[in-house]
Design a protein around this nucleic acid. Sequence first.
DNA 1: TATTTGAATAACTAAAATTTATGGAGATTC
DNA 2: GAATCTCCATAAATTTTAGTTATTCAAATA
Lengths: 316, 316
Amino acid sequence: MPELPFTLDQLRILKAIAAQGSFKKAADILYVTQPAVSLQIQNLEKQLEITIFDRGGRKALLTEAGTLLLEYCERILNQCDEACKAIEDLNSLKGGTLVIGASQTTGTYLMPRMIGLFRQKYPEVSVQLQVHSTRRTGWSVANGQIDLAIIGGQLPGDLENLLQVIPYATDELALVLPAKHPLSNKKELLKEDLYKLNFVTLDSQSTTRKVVDKLLKDSGLDIQRLKIEMELNSLEAIKNAVQSGLGASFLPVVSIERELDAGTINKVSIADLEVKRELKLITNPSRYTSKASEVFKKNILPQFASLESPLRHIEI
Amino acid sequence: MPELPFTLDQLRILKAIAAQGSFKKAADILYVTQPAVSLQIQNLEKQLEITIFDRGGRKALLTEAGTLLLEYCERILNQCDEACKAIEDLNSLKGGTLVIGASQTTGTYLMPRMIGLFRQKYPEVSVQLQVHSTRRTGWSVANGQIDLAIIGGQLPGDLENLLQVIPYATDELALVLPAKHPLSNKKELLKEDLYKLNFVTLDSQSTTRKVVDKLLKDSGLDIQRLKIEMELNSLEAIKNAVQSGLGASFLPVVSIERELDAGTINKVSIADLEVKRELKLITNPSRYTSKASEVFKKNILPQFASLESPLRHIEI
DNA sequence: TATTTGAATAACTAAAATTTATGGAGATTC
DNA sequence: GAATCTCCATAAATTTTAGTTATTCAAATA
């Protein structure tokens, strides 16, 4: 090893002697014996080819070279202390960045609340939320750009194996109708009733739309026969459209809590049909997990998870 | 020992890995084996309770904590390098201060030339010249305020034992007369001729004056009978007085070289009387000797020493 | 002069880093 | 897609380094 001419311990000893004015006192405050101190200083002097202390008199006095070295010594040790503090802060979540990925729905309605809770507990950790498609989010988690993400759609097969996918919550996609719609006060609709409705939907590329289409098809409905009034690319826009009486839609319940409370939208169930999807937590097990990420997973997510979620019971 | 959470070697390894992107390459550069690098990083990670490198992919990538640590790491190592350079400079006489003591005469006529030569060789060492009485110079050497000094007088007894005193050169105190003085073209004066002269002398406290008085008295002269025209406290003033024809004086030859060449002053020898004193080099053997001081003693002083000086022959 | 105090030294012990040798996991090559 | 290559981790043994106890030495104090 192409050696450095000194060690941090030697610098610490140097500093202590300079402060105490004595090898013995320095040894005492460093909790070592006096010879240990003597030897280390001798090594230091040998390696730097200088004399550091004048051991003549009552006190150990710094020579010119010693004074020079002490200046650097103090700077170096201060930097070390700072480094330690910074690392401690990072460990105790007083710093760092947590990057969270989410799809449109969770990113808009779920994440803000979660992140709010997290930031309340750990205000010094900055959190970044990236809302992307399921596919892109998956890739970002895979290559470490995102620490953890919640997705509602299906991952491409290769990613599915690479990443850790944990069922997190069930998101109901409820059929919602304008408050004044003739069918909106019925207790339960029949599947066939859907053909009578005009739909306002997300555009056909969106994950949520795909999920809904698939579920309806799987339940035996002919989705070609469903009348689509218009396709919009924003849940908020759809909500407004529904509230304005333009049509019906399948929307995540998390996105319409306020409207249901206000009664401006009605949610109607359908016989023999549950439009639900699994929200899944994805992480990259082969990558470094930051403390912030761990804490978010362990402490924040479970509070918002549905009862069946493994996160409720399992230590992750 | 209340330990530091890392060593400089660990930081060096961290830096190398970050630069090379690989444990193995870092090991090669540092001339150690790969396991040594791995283990040190593992220790570092354990002690700081962080993960520093992401060993997943092709390259070893820094984690967030690793990036943070690296910043401090570079700063710390830079400071270390600087410290080394500063010490090297000091060792190779590219810095530091040399404090030289001298009495009036040597300080005025000898030292400037010596220091000039020294500064020519080692321009980065700053030199400080302190002109004081022999006694005060002795004390300053004793307590380390002066690295080395040349004195012409006698040290107090206690200091004489404490310090190292090396005969350095012989300083002739020549009798000088105004160029136009009636006796000035005589080859040699008799002691009795001195009673006919008017003297311009240094004040009676000065070392040189004391030395001259003692030597004259020792040679059998009655110094009370010598006529003293005036006492001045500066050799230059005396020289001017002599040149102006105000009287004679005993002056160190080193101080009148130019005037002798110019013929404005005549130097006259006296039968059976040599007014000479030993110039002595004094140092403090129980104190740290700076490189600059060593070099001055070994390389500069001998060039100005008289032939009999031990400095010519003896390794100090 | 005797005593005390602080630092140096020596011999021994404990701890730490380094090496050699080996195993495993992910890329690379044919 | 099996074989190979690279790179990192691990284990055991070795060397190096740091630390301790016991003692000596020198200077300062009383």
